[in-house]
Write a protein that binds this DNA or RNA. Structure first.
Lengths: 114, 114
DNA sequence: GAATGCACTATCCTTTAGGAAAGTGCTATA
DNA sequence: TATAGCACTTTCCTAAAGGATAGTGCATTC
């Protein structure tokens, strides 16, 4: 017996969207990337540029982003030792996502107040 | 004493991005919207077009999307009664987000296999 | 020598997301 | 009359996300 299949397939779109969501899901990854990409490099600077993020969460998210090759943790051996977070070239690939979300968010806010 | 402020502000971007994430965060909202926008209308069709989503989760997400005015629940009073989920015009505004995520996901997958 | 900054880690806790499995009330079909 | 489809709901549960608070070791600055 062949099962009834009336639904429209959309896996072409769904699969890559899922792959992207697997990387960026959660409250913090995209905001952190934005902060680093505008030029914040130090742990505390990033923390302060994104209000309300706790150091524990920030540390964990930075590690995730490093694993995904979106940022790099750079150790500068001066005295005192400095640690810098820098965007990898691959990070540029997320600019269209950020732009789309930013645009949408701005428009959504307008919509709410009319 | 004025506090030291060395970090670069990026709230212009961060705020709207957050607003957007507040709406779309989670594993399912965007995939469900995609499914409805390609033309799936019935609960079970949507469920089957997105493999692995449970009816409980789908029901909840559909309610959220309705609240955000992205879809509409339409009751057709034939016999038997039909229930259809249809995209609202506002749903079109998320196309750039989907496209950006899809593009990124495709490219990311390529990257992983090279 | 006291306070502050830096880059975290550690502990504990709450909330939310999400999944598994079964069931419900209705209708239609074999 | 039994089975299947539809659109869910209910219950129970786990894992992950995220937050609060404190502390650490080091260095610099007041």
């Amino acid at each position: 017996m062949t099962p009834k299949q009336s639904y429209l397939s959309c896996l072409d779109t769904l699969k890559p969207v899922r792959d992207a969501l697997d990387v960026f899901n959660g409250k913090w990854k995209l905001p952190i990337l934005v902060s680093i990409m505008v030029g914040n490099e130090r742990f505390t600077d990033i923390q302060h540029s994104i209000s309300c993020i706790t150091p524990k969460v920030l540390a964990k998210e930075l590690k995730d982003l490093e694993e995904h090759k979106l940022i790099r943790r750079v150790i500068i051996n001066e005295y005192p030792v400095k640690i810098l977070y820098r965007p990898e070239p691959y990070a540029e690939s997320i600019i269209p996502i950020i732009d789309a979300l930013k645009e949408w968010g701005l428009n959504h806010r307008k919509k709410l107040f009319t």
